[in-house]
C-alpha cells in the first residue's frame, strides 16, 4: 500500500453561505436598510412581537418589510401582513433554518432602498439557525418566560451567536414561576455582556425601550 497523500484545504465549510451573507450585508448597508434576524423556539411570541414592531415603526413613518421562514404554512406571514408592511414568505419544507441564498431569492423585485428596516423571522428552532449568517446587522434571540430560566444553558448557541436577547411574555412571569434573576444570570453566563430586553407584547410593557433600541441600532449601523 502506498502512503496516503495529504491535500490541504483549510476552508470554512459554510464559506459560500458566509461570502454571500457578507456581500448581502454590504448591499443592505449601501441601500440604507437595517436587517435583523430573529431566532427562537416555536411559540416564543416572535410573530406577535414582530407584528407590534412593524406596526409601531410604520406608524412613526418608517418604511419596513419582513421575510418569514416557516416549515410548511404561511400563517405567520399572513399575521404580519396585517401591519400593512410588505411581507414575503419562505416555505422551507422541513428545512429547519434559513440560509443566505433563501433570503437573497426573496429580494428580487424589491428595491432595497425603499426600506429602512427589513426583519427576517427565522424558522422556529433553537439550534439549527445559529450557524447561518443571513447578512443581518443584528441577530435577536427571543426567549419567552414560559420556556423557563434554564433555556440559555440548554441552548447556549442561540444566545452566543446573537447580539441581543429579548425576554417575551413577561406578563406571564408570575403564573409560570419564572426566576428572572436566574434567567438573566444564565444569559450573561453563555453570552457575557449581552443586552437584554424584557417585554410583553400583550401588556405593552417594555415595548418602547425595544423600539428605541432598534431605532438607535439602525442609526449606529448606518453611521
Amino acid at each position: 500500500m502506498q502512503e496516503p497523500r495529504i491535500l490541504q484545504v483549510r476552508t470554512q465549510i459554510l464559506k459560500k453561505n458566509d461570502e454571500l451573507a457578507r456581500s448581502m450585508r454590504e448591499q443592505f448597508l449601501q441601500a440604507g436598510v437595517f436587517v435583523s434576524n430573529w431566532v427562537s423556539s416555536p411559540g416564543s411570541g416572535k410573530t406577535t412581537l414582530l407584528l407590534e414592531t412593524l406596526t409601531h415603526l410604520r406608524n412613526i413613518g418608517q418604511r419596513v418589510a419582513a421575510i418569514v421562514g416557516d416549515l410548511e404554512t404561511d400563517n405567520d406571514a399572513q399575521r404580519l401582513a396585517q401591519s400593512g408592511a410588505p411581507v414575503r414568505q419562505i416555505m422551507t419544507h422541513g428545512c429547519c433554518h434559513l440560509e443566505a441564498n433563501m433570503v437573497e431569492e426573496q429580494l428580487h423585485n424589491w428595491s432595497l432602498s425603499d426600506f429602512d428596516y427589513l426583519f427576517v423571522e427565522n424558522v422556529g428552532n433553537l439550534v439549527c439557525p445559529t450557524s447561518w449568517d443571513l447578512g443581518e446587522s443584528l441577530r435577536v434571540a427571543l426567549l419567552s418566560v414560559t420556556e423557563g430560566e434554564d433555556k440559555p444553558l440548554k441552548y447556549p448557541g442561540l444566545f452566543n451567536t446573537s447580539d441581543v436577547a429579548v425576554l417575551t411574555k413577561i406578563d406571564l412571569s408570575g403564573p409560570c414561576d419564572f426566576d428572572r434573576d436566574r434567567a438573566l444570570e444564565n444569559i450573561q453566563r453563555v453570552r457575557p455582556g449581552m443586552p437584554v430586553f424584557e417585554l410583553s407584547a400583550k401588556s405593552g410593557e417594555g415595548l418602547d425601550r425595544w423600539f428605541q433600541f432598534l431605532i438607535h441600532q439602525r442609526s449606529a449601523t448606518m453611521g
Binding site: M1, Q2, E3, P4, R5, I6, L7, Q8, V9, R10, T11, Q12, I13, L14, S131, N160, P192, G193
Partner: peptide, 18 residues
C-alpha cells in the same frame, strides 16, 4: 470581558488521498 479565541471552527482541514 471575554472573547472567543477558539471554538467557532467548522472547517474542512485536509483530504487524505491515495
Amino acid at each position: 470581558s471575554t472573547q472567543v479565541r477558539h471554538g467557532n471552527e467548522l472547517d474542512l482541514e485536509f483530504l487524505s488521498l491515495r
